[in-house]
Every structure is written in structure tokens, then in C-alpha cells.
């Protein structure tokens, strides 16, 4: 075997090179400072990085988009109180309730947002603006399975056997679907015993349980699954990738979740965070984010809906969507997570 030789001179050069690399100056930064914004991975990360970065830059700040699921955002901020890793968080009411309870987000000052008045009052939250409303339903591959009517169909029609994927109770999308299933098969949205019994009676569905919606999209791409619980954004992304994917609003109604930007308590870049929030609710940003592959429902009144988004939901229909009671759900969620995990693992 060829022996490895290194002289003291070589080692010296190597060490000097490493030191020089570490001492290299950072790229030029905007003068106003920078904001570290947590967004969901995938479509959100791509969209916010490409659309909002130039807008925030125009305002004189740098934007760093950090992808993390809402639960991970919470965990990381709770892990470093007083020195949060993100200046802003992106989350639905489920996590927002936990964030308020744990005192990690703060009320905002709307006077610092030029575009605040462009939002409907329903989207003007005291803890931050709503940037979109995610409409949930069922994604399916029309080449592999017939169009499902709703959640009941997935358990009762043999055409879906072994082709449906679910997530655990850690996923908001999963929880919203389970509350609807609990209404159908049980006594109400929190009757999860009925949901667990349904899965026990249909063990083929337990084989399709995975960790996250992103994982489900990977399996959908590979033809491993043909149906999963989704948001309209998930289907838009799959379609943009050239895949056969369609969105179905369940016959019992579509669960929906507003997505909000929150200012983290202890943020050291408050002005930059406001500039980012303002960019996210601006007409120019939402005009781009409503287009495929993102198809985010615009909360800025001045932004027209695309025909694609209009086919899922109109502004008039927003009120008729199903908005879960997250305070009630969060109370039982840890126990449901443990119970469901044990059920899935057999």
C-alpha cells in the first residue's frame, strides 16, 4: 500500500490555508441588517426565497429563509429562550396557540406595515398577518384510483386498498383530516377513539402511515401511494412537476388553516422582520405567489384570484370552510400522538 507522507512544510501550508479560508470576508450585506425567517420547506421555501428576497432587499434588508416545519420552529425557539434562532415564524393557528402559551411570539405594531390595510380584518391578527389560507382535502392519482368522494370512501371503497397514505398526529394536515373523520365515524371532532378503531378495523391503512406530507409527496412521485391528505399547494407542486395529481374537496367540507407570520420574542432585527412581513402581504409578492407551482391563496384584497385557485375556493367561500378548534385539539394532541404511534407500530 502506498504510504501517506506529509512534511512539516506541507502541514504548515494546509493549516495556513484553512486559517485563511476561515478569515475570508463575508459577502456584501445590506446596510439595514438582516432577518432570519422560518418558512415551511419545499414550495414555501422556494417561493419566499425567490419572491421576497428582492423585495426585502429593496427595503434595505437581507432576508435569510430558513426551512423548518412549524413544530420544529417551535422546538428550536423554545430551546433558546432570549436568543431565538429565527426573527419570524410561519405557522398555523395550531402552533400559534402553543407559541402564545409559551410566550415566544409578540404582538405586532400594524403601523409599521404599509400593506396592512390591504388585508381583510380576518387576516389582521394581533400576533401577525395571515399570508395565505391553506385549503385541505384529498390528493389522488387519476391514473391509479377513481376520484374519491370523501374520507368515508377511502375506507369503504376497495379501489383504495393499500394505496392511501396518512401521517401521524404531529402533522396539522393529518390532524385536520382526522377531526373530519372523527365527525363522520364518531361523535365529534375530538372523538379520536372512533378514528383509532377505524384504523384497527382497516389495518391496510396503517401500512401507509409516514412522518410528513413532504414524505408522502415523495412516495406519490414514485407511485408508491395514490392518495394522501393534502393542501391545494401540495397538489399544485405535484402538477408543476408533471405528475398526475388532482385535488378533491371532501363531501363533508374542506378543512382550512390560515398561515400567519409571527414576530419572535427577543428578535434582534425587528425592523427587518417588519420589512419581511410587509413584503409577504404586498400585492407584488402575492401576485407572484398565487401562480403555479405555489398557488397560494392571496390574502391581499387587491390581488385577483387565478382560475386555478378559484376552482378550489373563492373569497366568498372562505367563511364556509372548516376551521378546527385548535385549542381543544392541542389539549389532547400529545396523547393522540402517542396512541396513534403505538397503534401504527402494531
Amino acid at each position: 500500500m502506498t504510504s501517506f507522507k506529509m512534511t512539516r512544510r506541507h502541514f504548515g501550508f494546509l493549516a495556513a490555508g484553512a486559517a485563511a479560508t476561515a478569515a475570508m470576508p463575508f459577502a456584501a450585506r445590506a446596510t439595514g441588517g438582516s432577518v432570519i425567517a422560518a418558512t415551511f420547506p419545499g414550495n414555501w421555501e422556494d417561493g419566499y426565497r425567490s419572491v421576497l428576497t428582492p423585495l426585502v432587499k429593496e427595503a434595505g434588508y437581507d432576508l435569510t429563509v430558513a426551512p423548518a416545519l412549524a413544530q420544529d420552529q417551535l422546538a428550536k425557539v423554545m430551546a433558546s429562550p432570549g436568543n431565538p434562532p429565527y426573527d419570524t415564524l410561519l405557522m398555523s393557528p395550531g402552533q400559534m396557540a402553543v407559541a402564545i402559551e409559551n410566550d415566544i411570539i409578540q404582538k405586532i405594531d400594524p403601523s409599521k406595515l404599509k400593506n396592512w390595510s390591504m388585508l381583510d380584518p380576518a387576516f389582521q391578527g394581533e400576533y401577525g398577518p395571515t399570508v395565505t389560507v391553506e385549503v385541505n382535502g384529498i390528493a389522488y392519482n387519476p391514473d391509479l384510483v377513481p376520484r374519491p368522494k370523501g374520507y368515508r370512501d377511502l375506507f369503504e371503497n376497495p379501489a383504495y386498498k393499500g394505496l392511501v397514505s396518512w401521517t401521524g398526529f404531529a402533522s396539522n394536515t393529518g390532524v385536520m383530516a382526522y377531526t373530519e373523520i372523527a365527525k363522520i365515524f364518531g361523535s365529534g371532532p375530538t372523538d379520536m377513539e372512533a378514528v383509532f378503531k377505524l384504523f384497527k378495523d382497516h389495518p391496510e391503512h396503517l401500512k401507509g402511515v409516514v412522518a410528513s406530507t413532504n414524505h408522502q409527496m415523495t412516495l406519490f412521485q414514485q407511485g408508491e401511494v395514490a392518495v394522501f391528505m393534502c393542501s391545494t399547494g401540495n397538489v399544485a407542486k405535484l402538477k408543476a412537476l408533471g405528475l398526475k395529481a388532482e385535488f378533491v374537496q371532501p363531501e363533508t367540507g374542506s378543512p382550512a388553516a390560515p398561515v400567519n407570520i409571527h414576530l419572535t420574542k427577543g428578535s434582534k432585527n425587528v425592523d427587518a422582520a417588519y420589512a419581511y412581513m410587509d413584503a409577504a402581504i404586498s400585492k407584488v409578492a402575492q401576485d407572484q405567489l398565487k401562480m403555479p407551482p405555489r398557488e397560494m391563496f392571496p390574502t391581499n384584497r387587491q390581488v385577483e384570484l387565478t382560475p386555478g385557485i378559484g376552482a378550489y375556493v373563492t373569497r366568498a367561500q372562505l367563511a364556509s370552510l372548516v376551521y378546527p378548534d385548535w385549542a381543544a385539539l392541542n389539549k389532547n394532541r400529545p396523547e393522540w400522538i402517542r396512541q396513534f404511534d403505538a397503534l401504527v407500530a402494531g
Partner: peptide, 8 residues
């Protein structure tokens, strides 16, 4: 990723 939710 490979084990899924069934293999914990």
C-alpha cells in the same frame, strides 16, 4: 424515511 411510521 425507509422504515416509515410502522418501524419506530
Amino acid at each position: 424515511v425507509i422504515g416509515g411510521a410502522r418501524n419506530i
